[in-house]
Structures are given as C-alpha cells and as structure tokens.
Amino acid sequence: MTERLSQLIHDEARGLDIPAPSTDAILTRGRRTRRRQQALTGAAALAVVAVVAGGAVFAGSIGDDTARDIAPADTVDTGPSFAVGNTVYLDGGKVQATIADKAVKSLYYTSAGTLVRHGENDFSDRGGPQRFSLVTPNGDVLPVSVVTEETVPGVDPDQPYLAYAVITDGRVEVVVHDITTDTEVARVPVTDDFEGGWNAPPVAIEGDLVYVGTDTAPTVVNWRTGEESSTDRVDGPLVQVSGGRSVVQRADDHLTVLDVATGEMLDLIELPPSEYGTVLLSPDGRYAMVGDQVADPGGESADTTVRTIGSGDEVVLDGPSYDWGWTADGDLFRITGKGLQTCAADSGICDTTPLPDGLSAEAAEVKLGGQLYES
C-alpha cells in the first residue's frame, strides 16, 4: 500500500460516525460467556466421571440420548422472573408460560432457564407434594420428574442441576438431577444424621459441591466423587451459599459473609432490629439484601438495604425485603402500582416498565425469582 493511499484511508476513517458500544450489551455478553465456559467445563467433566465402586455414586453424560431441546447456556437470560398463580413471567413479562398445576411455590435461576417449584397450593410448609418444571427462555414448559415434600432444594445459576436430599432406610442421601435431560446424575449417601423440621435436610449446590444441613454441622459432599467432609463455613440447617459465599450467624446479632473455599470473612452485617431480620445473598453472591422477611402487623414497612459484599457500600430501596426479588445477575426487582421496577444493586438506580396486560400490583399469590420462600 502506498503512503498516499494509506493516508486517504485513515482520513476517511476519522470522518466516520461510529456509535459507542452498548455497555449493557457488553456486560450481558460477558456474563453469558462466563456461564457458557463454566457449563462446558462441567459437561466435559461429567462425561468422564467413572462409576464409584459399589454404585453409591454415579453420573451420566449430559450429551446422552435423553437430552431435551434446550437452548445453549450462552443464550439463557431470563431477566426478572416472577409468577402470579400458575402463570410464570420471564424477562419482565415478555415471555409467559402456564404451569399445569394449582400454584407456584418458588422460582430458581439455572443455566437452562427458570426452574419452578409448584403444587396444590403456594405453601412451602405443610404444602403437600412439591413438583418441578423448567421454563426455558422461549417459554417452553418441560416437566421434571422429581417430586419432594417438606424439603428445601438447591440450584446453581451457572448449572442445569437440581439438588435435594432424601432419607432412605433412615440414611440421608443427596440427589443431583439434570433438568435438561431429566435424569438423575448422582445419588450420594451421607454419614451424618438428620432429625430437623423437614422430611430431609435442606441443601445448597455450587459446582461439584452440595452443602447439606445435617444435625451436627453442615456436611459437604462432592457429588461427582462421593467425597464427604464437615464444615463450619456454612450455617445449618437452612444453608445459604451463593457465588462461593455463605452467610453465617454470629452470637452478637451480626451475620458474617464468608468465602466458603478459604473461610475468609468478606463482610460483617448487622441485622435489622427485628426478630425476623434476614440477610439474603444475590444468586451470584455479589450483594446482600438486608431487611425484614415478615410483614409489620402495624402496617408500617421498613426499607430494604442492599449491600455490596466486601466494600461496605449500601443503597436503600423503598419497601420491605419480601417485596423484592433478585435476577440471576444480581439486580433487584418488584411489582408496584406503576409497573415492574428493576434496580441496580450497586447504585440503587431504578427503571420501571409496564406490567403485562391484565396484571396489576394487587395480584394475589405473587412469587419472585431469587426470593426465599422456604422456611
């Protein structure tokens, strides 16, 4: 290329009006890429897991013939997910799906879509059988052949698994179910006993580890290898682990947020002056919602504090914490008289969009994704 031609090309390029890239698009793509990489890593590992002697632990390939028509992990973005009655709304209401059951109990974010726990009513305690369905980002409803009762399951937003515990012949077992293939991929016996207020101990899952709220101390099970240990980095029996972080109660009405891998204390959070004060981590573990999980009988509602873990930065949002849900990527949302309000957890900046036609803020039996309904 001659020097003159090169100069002409550069002069022309400088005169072009090129719009700035969308920050939201870049962030969304980055999050999706991260999830895709983790999903591919997990799939590769699962494909080579060997059967453990005795058959107590087993795993199957994600890519077997039982796979259902699920979108790739890097296209999954269900946005704010909520339910009214037995209708589930994804992406703030842009996608709707009907669950073939009486009511929705709770919603969980997974790498394959929004997992719905449903049954004869919207109760979590003494509510009868708990059934599950996967709602994909395009609104397809895929039943999951798992039925539990009076138990607290666990999911990981970056994986397509549902984890739960059962008691078989008096012994606790951890079960991991692939919701994309609707197959059980692991069943691991746990040494410790459980005599708590559920039919089986509550669990949380992250990566290869399932945290089980057993009697003496939470048990950690590697569901791929069957390796088991106990931990003091997670509270039980209602275990809470998100983004590699856990919430642990202290005797002085403070909660600590720990790195579950190292035990490092990442944050110290003072509970609200209420016997029902709670701290609920975002699904990605970056933020904590601090508030009151029970309505004030006097009619006054406390505000909700949202804290960035580790920095101590806080923003305050109107209304009690039970009115707010999480998105998978750590934004907050709620249904108001003006529409669906979505807020950034780090800045408190909010945006309101209209609700789907026919839906109002007074709708009964509203369930929000990322909110804790188990007790």
Score class of each variant (00 low, 15 high):
R187G: 10
N222R: 05
V174P: 06
G197I: 01
P157D: 02
D169M: 10
H177P: 03
V221P: 07
V212T: 08
A217C: 02
T183E: 14
V174R: 04
A163P: 05
N199H: 07
G170D: 08
L209C: 01
Y211R: 03
R171D: 11
T191Y: 12
V155T: 15
Y161F: 14
D208C: 00
T216A: 13
T219V: 08
V221E: 04
A165R: 03
V212S: 07
T216L: 14
H177V: 03
I167W: 00
V220F: 06
D156W: 05
E173K: 09
Q159M: 13
V210F: 05
V190Y: 12
G196T: 00
D156Q: 08
E195T: 05
V174G: 06
A204W: 00
P201Q: 08
A200K: 04
G196Q: 00
A204P: 03
R187K: 15
T191W: 14
E195M: 01
D156H: 08
N222W: 04
V203Q: 13
Y161V: 04
I179R: 13
H177E: 05
A165Q: 02
V210I: 07
A200W: 02
F194W: 15
D178R: 11
I167Q: 10
T168H: 10
Y164F: 14
D169K: 15
E206F: 00
V172E: 12
W198S: 12
Y161K: 00
E173S: 11
L209D: 11
V210L: 06
R187H: 11
G213W: 12
V190W: 11
D192H: 13
I205W: 09
L162V: 05
V166T: 14
P160W: 12
G196K: 01
T181A: 15
G213V: 14
Y164G: 01
D182H: 09
E184A: 15
Y164R: 01
V203S: 09
P160S: 12
A200Q: 06
A204I: 02
A186D: 09
R187T: 14
A165M: 02
R187C: 05
D193P: 00
D215E: 14
T216W: 10
E184D: 07
R187A: 15
V185K: 14
N199A: 05
D178Q: 12
Y161D: 08
T183F: 03
D169F: 08
I179M: 09
D156Y: 06
P218Q: 07
A186R: 09
E184S: 15
A204G: 12
D156M: 04
P202V: 01
Q159D: 09
V188C: 05
L162R: 04
V174A: 03
G213R: 10
D169S: 13
E184M: 15
D182Y: 09
A165T: 07
G207L: 03
G207T: 06
T183R: 15
V172D: 06
I205G: 10
D192Y: 11
D182V: 14
H177Y: 11
D178W: 06
A217K: 13
W198K: 04
L162K: 06
G170F: 07
T183C: 12
